[in-house]
Design a protein around this nucleic acid. Sequence first.
DNA 1: GACCAGGACCATT
DNA 2: AATGGTCATGGT
Length: 308
Amino acid sequence: MASESATIEKHFPVADYNLAVTLASGQAFRWSLKPDGWWEGVVHGRCLRLRQTETGLLARLVRPAQDWLWLEHYLQTELDLQTVLATFPRNDIALQTAVASCRGLRLLRQNPWECLASFILSSTKQICQIEQCVELISRSLGQKLESFDPAGEKFGFPDAATVAAGGEELLRACKTGFRAKYLFGSARMIAAGEVDLASLASMTLEEARDQLTRLPGVGPKIADCVLLFAYGFPRAFPVDVWVERVVRECYFNGRPVKRDRLVAFVENHFGQRAGYAQQYLFHHRRMLGKIPAAADTKPAAKRRGIAS
DNA sequence: GACCAGGACCATT
DNA sequence: AATGGTCATGGT
């Protein structure tokens, strides 16, 4: 740290990194694209701007910093994406199509508590609503940060003890609905040390899953989101409605599949980086769902008529 | 206005 | 063990 001088910007040289797709693929909920082309967000209690360059990513802070390792870790810029893609089954047309269509999509490495809290709020909500809840909770309980634009106030996400102290009603006022009691209960357990989030990093996937699912409002899906997006367990495989849909369509001939059977299949099929494969399938399928499939009016209403 | 959204939980079978 | 209903809230 001696020779490095503090700078307000830092460039991260990295290939195969699509910043826009990564920040908008439903894994993190505090990023927004500004009209000037910068992405603005909050990471580890700091306001941050990011933008794509020809050779990597450019980051800018409000104040100069010497240490940028925290951001390198968050962005996972040291990861060689090609080695990840090389683990995918090569003859899987559905997956390869998703990879080709979402080139440069990456997995971030987020703060465990913020990630957990965000996904406790995620159940049967759309991504834009999750973003709204996270923002409201940050404004209500979080610390005010130094921001780029004095007009645009930014707040850090409150820690578990602060959320617990804030109470369930405050969370409900943040439009969290029936999830308020879950987030409150989980915050209390974590603040009381009944579940130690830091200790999960050195556990096996199954052990860490068992710990997270002790928390109220945390089932297998949300647990795997946290294990994948915050801890980087490479085989964590969250199954939401979109993933269930794409796996059923592409690997089970469109027929309904029970969750246990689906999980057994993907663990065998996608290999050591199943979680990465999941993110490509999820984002690609979700993008298809948005677009009404280019003049798909009446005939051929079903792109795959396998239901019967 | 119906239907759906990065689910989990609890009460019935 | 395996379904079915329920829980808020906003977008399409």
